[in-house]
Design a binder for these strands. Structure first.
Lengths: 341, 341
DNA sequence: CTGAAAGCGCTTACAG
DNA sequence: CTGAAAGCGCTTACAG
């Protein structure tokens, strides 16, 4: 290695010790909160440290303590405001806890296991996985090493990892009830990631809700929307151009619902009069006057806090936490009263 | 430290060496690409490693090599899709380069220096700073240690750090020209972060452009919009409700422009007929049919790649890179032809 | 409270 | 190609 690389003035604790006239251990103690050290020594150390621009090396500390004080965050599609907001919330909360964040972007295709391996190399204290499916081999690896893993907004049946998610079935039922009350007669559905539990549960709930209202769900039109704006737009465009145009549409997340509303806008189809729309998540955009989307709110901040509580709990027993979604009625559905006359 | 903590099976290279019947150094070589090792030994090591679920400890590696292979990302408001998209782009590119990402969220108030200090503790190989102003003392600290810093979408005059930004003055001029051509007569401006160079330059350019078109800029109405949706909404609401309602509005970023458009929508003011709007950034939302915003596109991916090139350049000479914004004309302004008749 | 010393788990000249 | 050994920069019993 070239000697120029590490940079000119990178003082180590020994350098500080020498300058301060104390032992290296004293310097170490000075920088550990609660280290037993006299005020006078502390003073000497701090002066010397300031003079040398000393910053403790946390790699060395981690090696000694076997704790990296780092949490890995595996996030998905940041183009979806739900996850961008979640990331914001996670990073704010973790910073409060003085944890460093190692960020991993779930690759579009495949190799999640590689990311998990790198997390293990970096000796993270915990792992939050947001939108992705992880092999049971990898979670076993983590658990084996005593590294807690929590899935956020996903639940993987049969995997013994903690998870925090919303009662997606209940949300689906609520969506159905809301569209029925809004006066819907011909129902349609735009679905998201086919292999996700969130999507499956929301769809199941929706069908269950329709059934309970006496709707013949064999008539239910379904299009995949890929959990993206463009997917939602295209799916809605197709649905709304068809001969048997639906008048009630459930999108299994908000970003697809925004696409659907814009498709209706482009087709000059009135919302909610010609077609009512319900989404899921309550992302910030849903409230804007361009959309005013009726949706099922996921209590994001609560979910983030729950996730971190599970993650950093002393005894990491895999726990499944489910929170309730809440209906936020806006202008893309008619309220019951409006429907009656 | 309780012995339970570090987790049951966390094998070290010595363990692998013992099982494989080779030296610890051989294990190390097996896991370094290009390590001089025979195929046979490699084979033995890998078998033993797999058996023990061995994962190298990168803390120890970093301590030895004095390289963490980690880049710190200091990001700002993830509620602004511009930064969410930028983060996505950075994380994808850095992952390609096999760099780990240490994520820091710029606190709403103040203490950025603390974040920088923590980055230094973690021995990061480089720092990307997105939306924030950093003290020159801190950048000096970084430079001193030979840690390259690059400012993204910010330029701090007088600070000897690299930066990548858009020609914001030129963008402001273009915004003015576009609004003039669209038939504007009474101009207004919604400004962003008061202490940011991006805002200042865009405003300067805008005024310069108006001046060049013979507009009396003493008449220019200005409102602060804080670079947020809500700020833009409120500012526009105030401007559009006033007696001397402007008919041409420049918002110094897109997210404020979306707020402005929604304010006009709520006030039943037609765009672009009653008021034309130009934004800055070209975030994904700008193209949606709910908005169809005319804006100045920042070439985000190019900027991200430039930033990483500067960051990881062998010899880190502070370099200022400026890219050109490009006008994307959509429906919130009238084209020149439409204006003539 | 303080210092000398062992140890965290790797990498890498050095000698063979 | 391979192993023994020093070293990366801390933390933390241990003894005083």
């Amino acid at each position: 290695m070239s000697d120029i690389q590490p940079g000119p003035s990178r003082a180590r604790s020994v350098d500080v010790a020498r300058l301060a006239g104390v032992s290296q251990a004293a310097v170490s103690r000075a920088f550990r909160p609660g280290g037993s050290i006299s005020a006078k020594t502390l003073q000497k150390v701090m002066t010397a440290a300031a003079q040398l621009n000393y910053v403790p090396n946390s790699m060395a500390r981690s090696l000694s303590t076997r704790q990296s004080n780092t949490v890995a965050l595996l996030i998905g599609d940041l183009h979806n405001p739900f996850y961008a907001t979640a990331l914001d919330s996670f990073s704010v909360e973790l910073q409060k806890l003085d944890k460093q964040i190692l960020l991993f972007n779930a690759p579009r295709a495949g190799d999640l296991d590689g990311a998990i391996l790198r997390m293990l190399e970096y000796q993270v204290d915990g792992i939050v996985i947001t939108p992705a499916t992880v092999s049971s081999r990898m979670t076993a690896l983590c658990l084996d090493r005593g590294i807690p893993v929590v899935m956020f907004n996903r639940f993987i049946p049969g995997l013994s990892v903690s998870s925090v998610s919303c009662d997606n079935v209940a949300g689906g039922v609520l969506a159905a009830q809301t569209l029925v009350r809004s006066g819907g007669a011909r129902f349609a559905l735009i679905s998201g990631g086919a292999d996700t539990t969130t999507n499956r549960d929301r769809v199941n709930g929706f069908e269950r809700g329709l059934l309970a209202a006496g709707v013949d769900i064999r008539q239910l039109l379904t299009r995949p929307g890929d959990y993206t704006y463009d997917g939602g737009y295209r799916a809605a465009r197709s649905l709304l151009s068809s001969a048997q145009r639906p008048d009630a549409l459930f999108c299994t997340n908000d970003i697809m619902a925004l696409g659907a509303i814009d498709a209706a806008r482009d087709l000059k189809i009135a919302i909610p009069d010609d077609v009512a729309v319900v989404g899921f998540d309550d992302i910030p955009d849903a409230a804007r006057s361009a959309y005013r989307l009726t949706t099922l709110r996921q209590p994001l901040n609560l979910m983030v806090r729950e996730a971190l509580t599970l993650l950093l709990a002393e005894e990491a027993v895999p726990t499944v936490r489910v929170v309730k979604p809440r209906l936020v009625a806006r202008q893309t559905t008619r309220s019951q009263e409006e429907t009656i006359p």
